[in-house]
Amino acid sequence: MTTWLRLLPHQIPFRAASSMLSVDDDSIEGSFLCTADDALAAGGMPIDVMLIEAMAQFAGGLAFGDRPGHGYLSAIDRCSIDRMIVAGEVVAIRVDREADFGGVFRFRGRATVDGVEIARGRFYLAAPPLN
């Protein structure tokens, strides 16, 4: 499980999940590091988008970290961001599994900076097809 970050289909610069701190059956915690030289931000992508992507990637780690194959992000809803994040900030992320049924998973993600929640959303992931 601890190696799933290296096994993600997204790697730098598309890997937004920076580090994992803890994981159990129903939740995962990690961080997103906002750097001044982020390649995607330099290319014009709002860094906030990568924060949301980080929550989705952690959800993927929770759902599929110990499985062969990759899952798919199916939907995002109830997502909101309170403020811009800036270079140098370390965003703590927690993702909780709410439900899974029929190969589809629902998670709730929250992002905080210094203990203050700045973003949240619900994420739906679909399991890879069985071979």
Binding site: S74, A75, E98, A99, D100, F101, G102, G103, V104, F105, R106, Y124, A126
Partner: peptide, 25 residues
């Protein structure tokens, strides 16, 4: 399938039922 997840959440929050064994449920 998204609606099915809402039903799963509803079963837990309203009736205290965790759907774990999907094939039987």
């Amino acid at each position: 399938s998204i609606d099915a997840l809402e039903i799963v959440v509803m079963l837990e929050s309203e009736f205290g039922i965790k759907v774990k064994n999907e094939s039987s449920a």
